[in-house]
Amino acid sequence: MSKFKKQRKGMPAINTASLPDIVFMLLFFFMVTTVMRETDLKIKKPQLPKADQVKKLEKKSLVSYIYVGKSKDGTPGDKLQLNDRISSVKDIKSFIFSERAKHSENEIPRLTTSIKADVEANVGTITDIKIELRDINALKINYSTIKGSALDNMK
């Protein structure tokens, strides 16, 4: 009888009450830092150029993105993506206007256009974009880059 009792005692269960606390801590960290991806890329993901004279983009809500890169099916030439569809340079104006409509009047001068272009894109395409943007007075632009040595872009 005494033997039987001893066996039943066994190991005490490990207290896992603090496990949720740890997990919640991690959870909150990721919840705070997370940025939901707003658009699906229809073009090949642009490989951003590197630069070291970079500035952080201040307010994400004030930024509209223009993606420039190659198409997924391998047709030559640079493709443009605004929001979630492939567009042409002519659509930029209406794109910016629709972005402006989302913001209040006094925020409009602070709106920034971020150009996320592939290292191998042509400057011509970028220039066309810039001319369109200048036409409608969207003057603040940002060439999206990743931190690194600019010399690597030349390879």
Binding site: Q53, K55, L57, S114, R134, T145
Partner: peptide, 9 residues
């Protein structure tokens, strides 16, 4: 984080 070279046209 989004970083880049800022320019004003």
């Amino acid at each position: 984080v989004d970083t880049g070279i800022s320019r004003k046209l």
